[in-house]
């Protein structure tokens, strides 16, 4: 069961990030950026689909879409940062950057998993996440070191989203068990590298790293912010309203 829970968490974070990013479609600051954000969203939906296929296989009963569309708020395990509303473009970029930096390091480690499925899924995701990190990082620098207005805006985004970064490095029973058996990642082991990516980028962006203060927690137990319920009620409405229909 731990392996299923572990994989489901990864899938959920990808799925919810993808769903949020897809909301940008037709709203990007430039046409090129609209296309880039949709691309990243598509990558993440693809990753979610891949991890959910494995979850479905481990479960032996429910399909990928059952997992995506028929679970309630308390049964989702994505990082809280992924469900936060898009806000303005700077908010989205900060969210994407902080998570992509984590994903990059996480998948780098997970691609060495003893579990062949997980290592293959991680290796595939890693290729895509490298680009997500590069893209969001380049926007961090442009917005941070762009105009006074953009610097102020993105600094505020960073300050308000910082409280969600503690979750990346939490280790509960499932994480400990999976990582000890060589199947998963010890999240604490990537914190130093994450700090390095964040610190060098922030200094290049002329942004100030917020102090670690109150950190959000709970997603590993299915405790979320109020935003997730709304996201799910929109995303899941058709399969829930017409349970007998095939699409």
């Amino acid at each position: 069961m731990s392996l299923l829970d572990y994989t489901l968490r990864i899938a959920d974070s990808s799925l919810i990030s993808a769903q949020r990013l897809s909301e940008w479609c037709s709203k990007g600051p430039t046409l090129e950026e609209d296309i880039a954000i949709s691309n990243i969203s598509l990558d993440l939906f693809g990753q979610a689909n891949g991890f959910l296929e494995y979850v479905s296989e481990l479960d032996g009963n429910k399909t990928v879409d059952d997992f995506a569309f028929k679970r309630n708020e308390r049964e989702f395990f994505n990082f809280k940062i992924t469900e936060q509303p898009n806000g303005h473009f700077g908010d989205t970029i900060v969210k994407l950057f902080l998570t992509s930096a984590f994903n990059f390091l996480f998948y780098t480690k997970l691609s060495g998993s003893k579990n062949e499925k997980l290592s293959a899924l991680a290796a595939k995701s890693l290729k895509e996440v490298k680009y997500h990190l590069k893209h969001s990082r380049s926007w961090m620098v442009r917005l941070g070191d762009g105009t006074e207005e953009s610097n102020k805006k993105i600094q505020e985004s960073l300050n308000s989203l910082w409280q969600f970064t503690g979750e990346f490095f939490e280790m509960d029973k499932v994480d400990t068990e999976i990582s000890k058996s060589g199947l998963g990642v010890n999240n604490l082991s990537i914190k130093e590298d994450w700090n390095k990516i964040i610190n060098t980028t922030l200094s290049e962006s002329k942004l100030i790293r917020p102090k670690d203060g109150y950190m959000q927690t709970g997603s590993k137990r299915g405790i979320h912010t109020e935003h997730l319920g709304h996201l799910l009620s929109e995303m899941q409405y058709l399969p829930r309203a017409y349970p007998d229909a095939k699409w």
Binding site: S22, I35, S38, F45, F69, E234, Y237, P239
Partner: peptide, 18 residues
Amino acid sequence: ISRAPSLRAKMILLAKVQ
């Protein structure tokens, strides 16, 4: 896009709009 009824349908629609 946000309400597509399956993951497959969602990816196809998003790719199409893109």
